[in-house]
Design a protein around this nucleic acid. Structure first.
Lengths: 223, 223
DNA sequence: GTCTATAAACAGATAGAC
DNA sequence: GTCTATCTGTTTATAGAC
């Protein structure tokens, strides 16, 4: 029982493996792990039910593999953007970098169709402390949040690891995440017919204004 | 098959009914609807498995009854507080009222142990458009959000139903809700050992600061 | 690697005694 | 109203042919 094929891609058999993970993320994210049957997953992936057990050792193995794929996916998407940024010691550059990162995150979370599945999957998995939580936290959430705190600290002149900055970064990131998970509610209240680029722009306008208000309010006056 | 007993309380049989609903909210909120078995619910409520079918017509009936109870519970908790407020035409009074309401919501969501179950239940139910969503939206979310927009509009001098105020109210309420659903993540990042009143105060400090920053930033200058 | 067939466990619902 | 016992369908996992 090879739990993992020797190569990650290129071989013919890995196509099924990838299709199963993508179907898993979509269905787990949309309906929840327990509410999704392996039959549904196999059907969506155009694969056989037994292939789940063959490739991942079972439904739980697929869950973990989905989590790893999602974490890798986001890490590759947002990681380089964060590490390339070098604001030096310029608070204004740090603020601009922070704004661009958050706008990019908003575009991804609110715009990309697949982001809905990924976000739903992560929200569900991160709601329960056990299992997938630890890996995603250590590999994804902690480093990204640290980078955000670093930028926010430089932009405001505050200690990046202070309560204010750490909680402030959560409060800003939380707004973006909230607009993703509560998008159905927001759309109904705003009487939006669709979820197009125009609606995303309106949300981003408020988010950007809130970011600037936070930095302006909490900026430490230079001595 | 009496789907609902004639009286809502006082009778002996309603004790089981209430216990089942409370167990349902807790387990549905913590694990999800499909992940929870009727046997678990009955065990937690110290009731018989068949009592669910007797009192609610089945598992789906219990789900709806739980949603109604939760909506009623929150409506009774936050409704009077919102309607008693009469800021008149004073923007400062409106701002203070808004701040007090949001701090009260934060205390409830972050402090009360049962709020975790309720919040989890609502977040899960509101994530799927069908079923419970419509009722909770119309009876709870819409009126509360309208009241919040009314206060926020008065405090800033903006049109309460403008995009800015409606989305702004969501962005503020979203922060509170995010700190509830992501509390495990936040606690780990903040290296908090417990979730006591001290930690809640730190979160509320940031929330209050963000509320004031929003109002100050978006205040319309009087002509 | 992929598929069919099947096993073993578990789900929710219900009939009927009390 | 409450309980036991049971029915029926579905779930995941697996054995074995190809």
């Amino acid at each position: 029982m090879p739990f993992k094929p020797p190569t990650d891609s290129g071989k013919a058999g890995d196509q099924t493996r990838m299709a199963l993970m993508m179907a898993g993320v979509r269905l787990f994210g949309a309906k929840g792990f327990e509410a999704t049957s392996t039959r549904e997953i196999a059907a969506l992936a155009n694969a056989n039910i037994a292939s789940i057990a063959y490739h991942f050792g079972g439904k739980d193995g697929l869950r973990l593999a989905c989590a790893e794929m999602v974490a890798r996916r986001i890490h590759n998407a947002v990681g380089p953007a964060l590490q390339t940024i070098d604001p030096g010691d310029d608070p204004a550059a740090a603020q601009q970098a922070f704004e661009m990162v958050m706008m990019g995150v908003a575009d991804f979370l609110l715009g990309q169709a697949e982001a809905q599945d990924i976000a739903g999957f992560l929200v569900r998995e991160l709601g329960i402390p056990g299992g997938v939580f630890d890996a995603v936290y250590a590999e994804l959430i902690l480093p990204v949040h640290r980078s955000l705190c670093s930028l926010l600290g430089l932009a405001t002149g505050q200690d990046p690891e202070s309560d204010l900055i750490r909680l402030g970064a959560f409060s800003i990131a939380g707004q973006v995440i909230y607009f993703r998970i509560a998008h159905v509610i927001v759309a109904r209240r705003m009487e939006w017919q669709s979820a197009g680029p125009e609606e995303i722009e309106r949300i981003k306008t408020v988010l950007l204004s809130n970011i600037r208000a936070f930095i302006a309010t909490n900026r430490k006056p230079v001595p």
